[in-house]
Amino acid sequence: MALVLLTAAFAPWIAPGDPTAMHLAEALRPPGPGHPAGTDNFGRDVFTRIVQGTRLSIGASLAAVAIAGVFGTALGLVSGYLGGWVDLLVQRLVDLMLAFPGLLLALGIVAVLGPGLANVMLAVGIAGVPGFARLVRGETLAVRSREFVLAAKSAGAPAFRIVLRHVLPNVASRVAVVATLALAGAILATASLSYLGLGAQPPTPAWGTMLADGQKYIFQAWWLPTMPGLAIAVSVLGFNILGDGLQDALDPRIRRLRATDGGGSGERRGDGRGRGAA
């Protein structure tokens, strides 16, 4: 994980080359001295592109997950805490969004907005909202009836304050865990959208796009789809370890909760959206 973040931070120093510089005469060179990850069909250095694409790919996934996390959490909190018709309304909205297969939803959104990394991330973010909303709602329901919330309520604290002060902090750890897992899904979602022709615009070195474009060369240049694939796998591994760590560190309660009530399905849905969109 640290490796990925360090790479993102120090990309220009690790691989100082220009990720878009073409050297047509050096196209499709296998990995070797000078080009540790080989060159692509334009003679661009794959290592440079992966390293310099780190910030972009991770950043974009962060943005997508942030969209999903923030809006999903807000919806889930409101719906879970207030209950009643608000809950009903939000839940119908969530049902509605969940009823679209994730990739299809993202596909539709990108088709409307037009391709491009920003739009792809927005689409993946929106597609992730219902997963978070459902997760947070479940958690909120569980927290709502706990003593400290009831105490605050009877002390006459406004709902807004209770949600921010008492409910959110208790829900946040779960959100963080699921978010780390969703990050991986977001990167993969870009790859799938690129594969279906709706990805980042060239020559942006986004991992997902590199992977999708590279699969054309799977027969003659294995490193083209494999290297960005490895980068994705390493990041996913990192995020997963981070997620597991967070889970253990932040809230031992989670595991008990998940095994015993509907929270389990919430977590799965949050995770599933990421995968679903992939």
Binding site: Y195, Q215, I218, G229, I232, A233, V236, L237, N240
Partner: peptide
Amino acid sequence: VVGVSIPQFWLGL
């Protein structure tokens, strides 16, 4: 981890 991080079009090929 490998399972969830491999894009399906790549795995398929």
